[in-house]
Amino acid sequence: MSVVINLNEVITDDWLETSDSDELGSNRSVIISLQRLQRDWDVLQSSDYRIGVELEATDDVEEIREFLPRLDLVALNFNVFADGRAFSQARLLRERLGYRGELRARGDVIRDQLSFMHRCGFTQFQLADSEEVELALNAFSDISDTYQPEIKQIPDCSATSR
């Protein structure tokens, strides 16, 4: 199972990625696709599942606007690390849509982009299998000051333990 970093510590991932055809099972925290979210919304919204949704780089974040108050996690997928669309999606979620829940980077998530991701509003990083955890945990302190305005109300990676 891939390692998930929350801000700058490794966490046990209690979220289960669930495909569109799978039954929702005993795991109470599920990550589902945008299509399933739209399809099963009536049932989901009144269930006791914690709901996370995964978006692809081609999805328009506006599509989940109405669901956001009920979502505990949004996962943005990096198909390949060099595809930078999720950076913009993250900022839109935080700054335009006012989303305050967990924002997870998944897919080709590499150490040397973690700091950019965090600065765009990601709080959780599901590392690609190739990545070494120790190295990844140090990634947030590579560069201390940056020139761009900070995204507000996002917890700071460097403020915690390390």
Binding site: F81, F87, F116, Y147
Partner: peptide, 13 residues
Amino acid sequence: RQWSTLHPEFSFL
């Protein structure tokens, strides 16, 4: 120069 340097959103265009 400053705005574009290590811009978190636009470093992988």
